[in-house]
Design a protein around this nucleic acid. Structure first.
Length: 371
DNA sequence: TAGTCGTGGAC
DNA sequence: TGTCCAAGACT
């Protein structure tokens, strides 16, 4: 038991645990009930990789169309490595957490240059790639290569917290290690891919957060939370802070030719490298917002403008921020010095640039009004 | 460690 | 409408 090197409650939980029966029940259920998903058509490490990055904090149903289109457009390591970053962001548009896309391309370039285009199969090498953390590392190694490494995500922590009766807060970073050691003790060495995917599949379809379908569970007989009647009390998860409201003002400015001004966001931070309509935080009263906007546009972009109308208000919620955007329309007065991050484009060309959803709302309301 | 980093679906 | 969230990683 000491060799397991896990916290005492997990060691205790594993005593008398029927590991072989548990594996068989879980694997049999998975092989009969697994969903037919596009990234399960083969074991191409690149496709497994892309799917795992897209699935981070994102629902399966949301990912499916993005995955199909992405693989269509970038079918191999090489095609992604040599693509323009902007086309990658465009393919990621609307999926969120955009640094995933940029990290993925950076990592793929690393694999193309330093690993001969082959996704590495050692924990140390694969974990060194940008955007590949402990979960994704284990997921790729086990799913693509059959290597018995733990792949502990939210599903696995929820499932195992219930089965093994673990009350550590899964919101704390250090808690994941407890579950990794538990998986090392439970994993079917000769079926690592199916085992890891089965734990996640169980969490996604049966052992769900709100109302788990325990009566349908293939490993119900192994579950201590069920036998104690506390399955809905687990896992323990600390609450997050609500997003902080941030008043914003945005300007859709048109020149005499009917072109609109767009700006590319900085390469770091929120919505990095995506395009937007010029905007800024507003601390002033509503009556002063248009004057503030003219001032901001002049100082930040050396653009002379006048504001005509306050056309709409949009609310957009991020994980930690809530933008309340007042949208104004106006005219560009003089010349605009275009640059890498400042362009004049026809409204019909806006669809060629990656915009965050918050600004897609503006585009839709202004330029697609009839549809 | 706790904060940063998106979005749309479920209830 | 508000709340929680869904196959996390990075700083």
């Amino acid at each position: 038991m000491e060799a397991l090197n896990v916290s005492n409650n997990v060691v205790q939980a594993l005593e008398d645990f029927q590991i072989k029966t548990f594996q068989e029940n879980l694997l049999t259920w998975y092989r009969e009930n697994k969903r037919d998903l596009p990234w399960r058509k083969d074991q191409d490490p690149y496709k497994v990789w892309v799917s795992e990055i897209m699935l981070q904090q994102t629902r399966v149903d949301t990912v499916i169309p993005y995955f199909n289109h992405f693989i269509d457009k970038f079918p191999t390591i090489e095609t992604l490595a040599y693509a323009e970053e902007e086309s990658v962001l465009k393919a990621w548009e609307g999926l969120g957490y955009y640094s995933r896309a940029r990290n993925l391309q950076a990592a793929v370039r690393e694999v193309a240059e330093n690993y001969g285009g082959k996704v590495p199969d050692s924990p140390k090498e694969i974990s060194s790639l940008k955007g590949v953390g402990p979960y994704t590392s284990g997921a790729i190694l086990s799913i693509a290569y059959g290597i018995p490494e733990p792949a502990v995500d939210g599903n696995v922590m929820r499932v195992l917290s219930r089965i093994l009766y673990i009350w550590d807060d899964i919101g704390k970073p250090k808690t994941r290690k407890i579950f990794e050691e538990a998986v090392r003790a439970l994993i079917a060495e000769d079926a690592a891919s199916d085992f890891n995917q089965a734990l996640m599949e169980l969490g996604a379809t049966i052992c769900t957060p709100q109302s788990p379908a325990c009566l349908l569970c293939p490993v119900q007989e192994h579950c201590r939370a069920f036998s104690e009647g506390v399955e809905k009390e687990l896992p323990v998860k600390s609450k997050k802070k609500p997003p902080k409201p941030l008043p914003m003002a945005a300007a859709v400015l048109m020149n005499e030719e009917g072109k609109v001004l767009i700006h590319r966001r900085p390469s770091e931070g929120l919505l990095a490298n995506l395009w937007e309509f010029p905007n800024h935080e507003t601390l002033s009263q509503k009556g002063e917002q248009d004057a503030q906007l003219v001032n901001f546009l002049s100082e930040e972009y050396e653009v002379e403008s006048c504001i005509d109308d306050h056309i709409a208000n949009f609310s957009h919620v991020f994980s930690h921020i809530k933008w309340n955007i007042a949208v104004y329309t106006g005219k560009l007065m003089g010349e605009v010095k275009e640059a890498d991050d400042l362009k004049l484009v026809n409204p019909s060309e806006l669809q060629n640039y990656p915009f965050p959803v918050s600004h897609q709302k503006i585009i839709k309301s202004l330029f697609w009004k009839g549809e």
